[in-house]
Write a protein that binds this DNA or RNA. Structure first.
Length: 286
DNA sequence: CGGATTGTTCTTCC
DNA sequence: CGGAAGAACAATCC
């Protein structure tokens, strides 16, 4: 279920481990999961790991050229790293046993590095992908997206202008990648709760003060979740060492329907917006 | 067996 | 043409 904080959690750990490693073998176990020529990756060296929206970018250097692997985990993708001894490393809260038996039945792609360490791309539902792209293709890809929600210079004025003709519920506007990226179903509900705005309000109905507050609250939640290593439900999101995030303990409304609002004691409501579950407090959020 | 599940893209309709 | 709604993608789990 990775949203921006979960993908960023993965990025930070990969950035500490992968640069300098050389690909000895790139195994595609599921053709649908990889777009590109796998043979082009042989001998490539990893340079940097960055992130845009919910997409990871691994910059590569080959003998003659530069190349990039873009990775989108979609809903069930995972990246798990095993060191040269075949063990996972790093701290955190252990999840299920399957992590000790890789490749698993959901492993779609395996990076084998020359130092015998490995990176596994697991994806139960096969919505996620890894794509080989040139620098130019990556730049074109980035054009499709608005700025990241945690961009420091993102302004309320930009959001307000983008939303001024939008009749759609503000929750959907917040999740529109062409306007702003990184917010998925979980953090959209949490951010609107923190800003005391009803998720069903038309986006255009928000005042500038409300947009300003919503932006600040959303950024604070995203940054707090990054600090805690993201949100994990049922072990579905894990970092590259197979450990859960801790932000789920901070959730105020998401999947809390029936429980009481921590501020006013009203029962948290659950409704559907564009087919997605949406959680809010009818008393606090206006 | 029906309904639900994280993200994104495509189609269809107005 | 743009905006909005809904389906589709695949595999579970309850």
């Amino acid at each position: 279920m990775p949203e921006l904080p979960e993908v960023e959690t993965i990025r930070r750990r990969l950035a500490n481990i992968l640069p300098g490693k050389k690909i000895a073998k790139f195994q595609v176990l599921k053709a649908k999961s990889f777009i590109g020529q796998a043979s082009a990756l042989f001998g490539a060296t990893i340079v940097t790991i960055s992130r845009r929206a919910k997409i990871l970018r691994i910059k590569l250097k080959t003998d003659s050229d530069s190349a990039n692997l873009l990775i989108h985990l979609k809903m069930t993708g995972q990246l798990i790293y095993l060191d040269s001894t075949g063990k996972k490393v790093g701290g955190g809260h252990p999840t299920a046993d399957w992590i000790n038996q890789l490749p698993s039945k959901h492993t779609r792609i395996i990076f084998n590095f020359t130092d015998h360490s490995k990176l596994f791309f697991n994806d139960q539902r096969i919505f996620g992908w890894i794509k080989l792209m040139t620098d130019r293709e990556v730049e074109n890809e980035w054009q499709k997206y608005g700025p990241d929600i945690n961009t420091p210079h993102l302004t309320a004025k930009y959001l307000s202008t983008s939303w001024q003709r939008k009749k759609i519920p503000v929750k959907l506007a917040l999740m529109d990648n062409q306007i702003v990226t990184g917010i998925g179903n979980i953090y959209a509900s949490e951010a609107l709760y923190a800003a005391k705005i009803n998720p069903q309000r038309p986006a255009k109905s928000l005042t500038m003060a409300e947009v300003k507050n919503l932006l600040a609250k959303t950024q604070a939640i995203i940054n707090h979740s990054i600090e805690l290593g993201g949100t994990t439900f049922d072990g579905s999101f894990v970092n590259i060492h197979g450990f859960a995030g801790q932000y789920q303990k901070q959730l105020k409304v998401y999947q809390q329907d029936g429980r009481l609002c921590p501020v006013c004691g009203t029962k948290i409501k659950k409704v559907k917006l564009a087919g997605r579950s949406t959680f809010y407090c009818d008393t606090c959020q206006k």
